[in-house]
Amino acid sequence: MSEQLTARTIQITGANGDEIQAYLATPDETDEPGPRGAVLVIHHMPGYDRASKEIVRRFAELGYDAICPNLYWREAPGAAPDDAAAVARAQGGVPDERLLGDAAGAIAYLRALPTSNGKVGVIGYCSGGRQSVLVACNLDVDAAVDCYGAFVTGTPPEGSLRTNLVDQLPNLRAPLLGMFGKDDKYPSPEHVAELDDILTANGKPHDFHSYDDAGHAFFSVDRPSYRVAAANDGWAKIAAFYGEHLATTASTPTGA
């Protein structure tokens, strides 16, 4: 736990070598001298907004270097988050390949920090929940958290740039923590059960929690979907999960 932290906007190299904006929060050296783990935060579809940045700072408070790339930087550099999200939406959204390139750039940035113990977790909310699973199926991460990502299983709408991830799940490279609301329709309890069954059949470690009296986006503190009991318990489980999988161990490499 870090009482003091630093947060700032930086540029990182994303997909296709593009320079994109990212929000970085790091614990103070005196509180967390390192080496330490790191977390990649994937923002929800409404964008790189204040609530997403609050999440990044919370991971720094928990003792991790944390970063959130602005996935809409190319479409709308410097725009307000809601305007950027609208432009990105009008242009079809973020293709999976580009998301993976941006995530790879962010992960490389985190591992190159002098404080890095080499371990990186990924977490995403809403559309970012699906993208978190996508990252864990394709990139080298040590732990992944899916917060109510739709269309990991199930059928995306016709014409969507996205597919479900069913054919990629056998490639999942990291333990997956799933956070879901029982009242959610996408993903529904049936979608979550299908994901659970597929991961079990493939021998993939996972730990799912589905909350009563919670639907989609129950972690969103600035939306009517916020559910304090589910969110508080969810944050505790996330902290424990990353504490287990991102901790520095005797065999953990240090530095870049």
Partner: peptide, 26 residues
């Protein structure tokens, strides 16, 4: 989809825009 400002989980959202004016031209 999700609104930014309305107090609802989902709303019907309409952006009326002139792309030539940039992201806030809506």
């Amino acid at each position: 989809d999700h609104p930014v400002h309305a107090m609802a989980e989902h709303t019907l959202n309409i952006d009326l825009a002139d792309a030539a004016k940039g992201p806030n031209g809506r």
